[in-house]
Each structure stands twice: as structure tokens, then as C-alpha cells.
């Protein structure tokens, strides 16, 4: 894989083309049992796309927040997206707490994971520390149709919260609450 990517990089440099895959999604192992074995960090109701995006973290990383590291080396974050249940008006139905209800099976699963050294293979302009990103189909195979450059681009400016939108903040809140 590493060889493969370096060869691609060299080729792209020579030709002046953009890389078809800039990072190594193959490095991310899809955790088939994430829904039962991982720790849920909440569900985001997406009002624009009418989706529910549930976030999970691997149990090893979850435990470490108490030691003062919100997202340690080896952190794996899963984002599972499914449609919300819609009412007759075409808008998501809200429960008594104001939350969306699931209206279908997951269609997209995004992941970000980090291991010391991974970032070295990502071009500097896109690098997000040691994070790599991947997109999976519900059956757990990589989805090659999803471009990964935007993942790096959008998560990159969030350096203060370790390139996450939800993960770091929830872990930090838990620690602050003394849980």
C-alpha cells in the first residue's frame, strides 16, 4: 500500500496531476461491531439534509479521557448516517425532547482514525496531524466513489479540538463533568 501510494505520488508530481487518493483509507479497518462494541458519543440531527449522524468511539480511546487525553493515539471515530423519519409535511418528526427519529437504515459510514506516523504520508497542505479518513458502504467495504480530500480540508482548521467536530468536545465535556 505504502509503495503503491508513493508510486502514485511520484507519478502525479511528474504529470502535475491531483492524486486520486491522497491518504490511506485502506489503513482504516472497518469495525463491523461498532454499534455494539463502541461507545456512543451522541447523535447529530442534521436539519439541512434531514439525516441523523451517530458518532461512536473505540472503547480503548474512550477510557483514556480520564487520564487527560481526550483522543489518544489509536483513536477510531465512526460516523454513521441514516435518514430521519419524516412527517406528512416532509419535515423530520420531532419527539418530546425535540429529537429526530430514525427513518431508515444507515447508508453512509464515515471514519477518522489516527496512529502515530500516519500523517507523514499525507501532503503537508492537507495534513490533519496523524488522522486518516475513510468512507464505507453499509456492508463495510470501502466506498471508492467518495472523495477524501474534502474530509481533510473541512476537518483541518479544527486543530484546537484535534481535527474533530464532536469527538474531542464530548470527551472533554465528560472529563470536565468528572464522569
Amino acid at each position: 500500500m505504502r509503495m503503491h501510494r508513493m508510486a502514485l505520488a511520484a507519478g502525479a508530481l511528474v504529470l502535475g496531476l491531483a492524486l486520486p487518493t491522497l491518504a490511506g483509507p485502506e489503513r482504516i479497518v472497518f469495525p463491523k461491531d461498532y454499534a455494539s462494541a463502541y461507545v456512543p458519543l451522541g447523535a447529530v440531527d442534521r436539519y439541512d439534509s434531514k439525516m441523523i449522524r451517530s458518532v461512536f468511539i473505540n472503547p480503548e480511546a474512550y477510557k483514556s479521557y480520564q487520564a487527560g487525553k481526550p483522543l489518544p493515539d489509536g483513536t477510531v471515530l465512526v460516523l454513521e448516517q441514516r435518514p430521519a423519519k419524516l412527517g406528512a409535511d416532509g419535515q423530520p418528526e420531532l419527539d418530546a425532547q425535540g429529537r429526530f427519529q430514525p427513518g431508515g437504515a444507515p447508508g453512509f459510514i464515515g471514519m477518522q482514525a489516527k496512529k502515530a506516523g500516519w500523517g507523514a504520508d499525507v501532503p503537508a497542505a492537507l495534513r490533519n496531524g496523524d488522522w486518516e479518513y475513510a468512507a464505507f458502504k453499509p456492508d463495510g467495504t470501502l466506498n471508492p466513489a467518495v472523495k477524501l480530500e474534502p474530509c481533510f480540508g473541512c476537518h483541518q482548521p479544527r486543530g484546537a479540538e484535534d481535527h474533530t467536530f464532536i469527538g474531542w468536545r464530548v470527551m472533554n465535556d465528560l472529563r470536565a463533568a468528572g464522569k
Binding site: Y47, D48, L94, Q97, G98
Partner: peptide, 27 residues
């Protein structure tokens, strides 16, 4: 607009100039 706090998480992408987003508070 997005809310990262567990139990309250919502997200409204790409809210353009002049647009509004309403969030009803029930909890």
C-alpha cells in the same frame, strides 16, 4: 450552526447570508 454537546447535538450546514435556522427547545 452546530451543537457538539451530547444530548443536544444538531447541525445546520451552509446557512447563507440572509437565511435563518429555527431550533425549538424542548429539553
Amino acid at each position: 450552526v452546530y451543537v457538539p454537546t451530547q444530548g443536544y447535538q444538531v447541525s445546520r450546514a451552509e446557512l447563507k447570508e440572509g437565511e435563518t435556522f429555527k431550533l425549538s427547545l424542548r429539553r
